[in-house]
Write a protein that binds this DNA or RNA. Structure first.
Lengths: 262, 262
DNA sequence: CGAATAGTGTCTTTCAGACAGTATGAC
DNA sequence: GTCATACTGTCTGAAAGACACTATTCG
């Protein structure tokens, strides 16, 4: 009752209280072979040994200053990359997701350039593999990692519609055609070239570097991401593909419906 | 090595490992007296006894099935409300935010109708108070709760620009003028009446109930939220207030700039 | 030259902002 | 009638979509 804050803290023993397990899990995305891929590991230890899972693990209370630092550490351990795009997606906690007991995981997602990964891969002994999204979606993953992967994907797809986030999947310099291609892969939808370029350039999301790159026939201008627009969002989202007008029948009634709106 | 998953789990002792403290904190918002307010409590116990803080606390591993359930329980304990708008904002964890040690908190934000709160207030013994946002922002709050409050506010303000979220601050039925007023309070910006109504009605975010309500002179149509559009987002955000054109001087050059764009 | 890729001109469409107008009811 | 509040008509403007067009390089 008359204890001071100092006394309270001196007598406080964290271990005296039940606490849930706390982990950090990572959905690490990259583009390779024209597909969006996610890095999965094959669990080397119990529980769920041998199952495919998102990389992740415990916070190192001694060395990780923050939760974000834990995520950076995990990412670096798996990919050798130290400055990726990294964002918290959500935190899931319940009594049943881990057989060891009540457990909470903070899910982060990272976007990396696959070339940067490939070069620095070396010091891994845990088996890990890049898996195409459509395949990963149909796999059985450990714990509730299928749900986590889904949440990360939804976030990526949503943000692709109104930000320049996907630049983080490309190297420093890129052509607008390459960038558009990445958008199309993520959204699984083709985009209008002119509208895409106008949007990127007029909002100054990307900046011309002056250099150019020859891939096919005509050389293409190289662009880089405008760091000023790190938290930039476009004033409108990219639209969903239009419902192709049903030409078989009912076309007239559809037109009537549209006119009713006016 | 040759241990089975069953054996592993039988020998696993959660307490054998260091774990951070894990809490859930709540930013509970309501509108009263034409102001956005947040519910703060005066901490009854150490640490930070006597300081103002966001309501929150530990997960009850025995009774809370999920993290969201913990948030619901906390909210109910403080407000008596069981079906509010409740959403996870973010999770903050680091070694320094709590003097007891490495600690993680999952922040949720809730929107409630103040009338619903008021009626059911009774069984509280911990001192709690509604505080206007501008005042709360200038107060000293326990731990990093000032940062948490800020994160929740940013989320609320952002979502107000592109969703119908603020309906959760009103009773079941409301007039469009009332709803617009709530938007204006949150955004601290006046909105165009016609544009606001068109947006809400044409997107079917709200539905006419047929009933009407007399407040001032002419009776106003009552609307209710369209549950179908729970996860609905408007195709565009409400715009920021235009920069009022500087009439003192430089007006001509401003006009030139506009024309240059064409 | 043709083929292929890079990049532009310009019209339409959608939806928010502006603002003046009309409608309804209390007094 | 006036006044206040509810509600509408309709023009402007910003930014996305559609699509035909030109430009540059390779062979």
């Amino acid at each position: 009752m008359s204890m001071s804050e100092k006394e309270f803290l001196a007598n406080y023993r964290v271990r005296d209280f039940d606490a849930p397990l706390m982990t950090v899990d990572m959905a690490i995305f990259a583009i390779m072979e024209n597909r969006l891929q996610v890095l999965l590991i094959k669990r080397a230890d119990y529980p769920q040994k041998g199952e495919w899972a998102l990389p992740g693990g415990f916070i190192n209370l001694a060395t990780d200053p923050t939760l974000l630092a834990t995520a950076h550490r995990k990412l670096f351990e798996k990919t050798g990359i130290s400055s990726p795009y990294l964002e918290q997606v959500s935190t899931v906690g319940n009594a049943t997701r881990d057989p060891r007991g009540w457990s909470v995981t903070a899910l982060y997602f990272a976007l990396i350039n696959f070339d940067a990964f490939h070069q620095q891969e070396s010091q891994r002994f845990e088996h890990c593999e890049w898996v195409e999204i459509c395949k990963a979606k149909s796999m059985h993953l450990a714990f509730d990692h299928q749900l986590l992967l889904d949440a990360a994907l939804v976030r990526l797809i949503n943000k692709t519609r109104y930000t320049a986030l996907p630049v983080s999947l490309l190297p420093e310099q890129f052509t607008l055609t390459e960038l558009q291609h990445i958008y199309e892969i993520i959204l699984d939808q083709s985009l209008e070239k002119k509208a895409f370029r106008r949007r990127m350039i007029e909002a100054a999301a990307v900046i011309e570097t002056g250099q150019s790159k020859v891939v096919g026939k005509r050389p293409a201008q190289l662009y880089r991401f405008n760091q000023d627009s790190f938290n930039f969002t476009f004033p409108r989202s990219l639209e969903l593909p239009r419902i192709p007008p049903c030409k078989d029948d009912h076309q007239e009634s559809a037109i009537h419906l549209n006119q009713d709106k006016k």
